[in-house]
Amino acid sequence: MKKLIYCVAALVCVFSFLGCAGQQNNNLPSQDMLDPPNLNGVWQALGSAHWNLEGQNAFKGPATDVLGALGGIPAGVSYVEGGAIPYTRAALIQREANREEWNKLDPAVKCYIPGIPRQTYMPFPFHIIQSDNKIFVAYEFGSNSRMIHLDRPGTRAELPSWMGYSTARWEGETLVVVVTDQVAETWLDAAGNFHSEDLVVTERYTPMGPDHINYQAVIEDPKVFTRPWTIQLTLYRRKGNDARILEYKCVEFAEDAVYGHLRKGEDMDQPNVKKLF
């Protein structure tokens, strides 16, 4: 398996002229003779996409009273091609309203399944287990997961779900995953960016070497956006003892926010979050 990774890495280097000294192979098989790239392993996005896809200054978060400097929200660049998300006029008003009270409205604050693409760039690792016809992705955040079907081209789910329905194909070295049938309740980040039930996400996972994947997601939703738009970020391989996902069952950490007002002695009429059931 490791040989395969090195073989694929060498190919990427040769074809992209990255100058990977010492890895050239004059007897490389043609692309159609190769197995698909091996994406097995533990990966994680760095950066601030989960806070705000469009980028932001650092600012004081709602938890600085108890967490101090650890509770601030970090600055970040835009991961959106062109910088801004092309909302319709009405949808932009909705996004601003979401942003106004984001921590009371954000589904991920409540530990609801973040959906795709947000689950990919949550600040937690995820583990890809790849077989020839199925790819299972196990995410640490929430112990969530999804099955990616390589053997069901063009099919759709019988029902919508929080993680949607993922079918995939290989285009050369790129794993192309089409995600449909997601519920409308998930957000794209913690900044109020949202979508409708018509969301279709086309993800492209392209190895950039043994330890990096270029992650691109095209987001289409005519109810909310004026045109398809694209985000791009890098996924990094976790290595050594760090290359495993642990347990972050977020329910136990969301219960204060979700049910705190219903505890004994609290004011039932003053919930910490909104849109709860």
Partner: peptide
């Protein structure tokens, strides 16, 4: 169950 050579995932 989905399996690779190094990991078996059960859900």
């Amino acid at each position: 169950i989905v399996e690779s050579e190094d990991f078996v995932v059960m859900q």
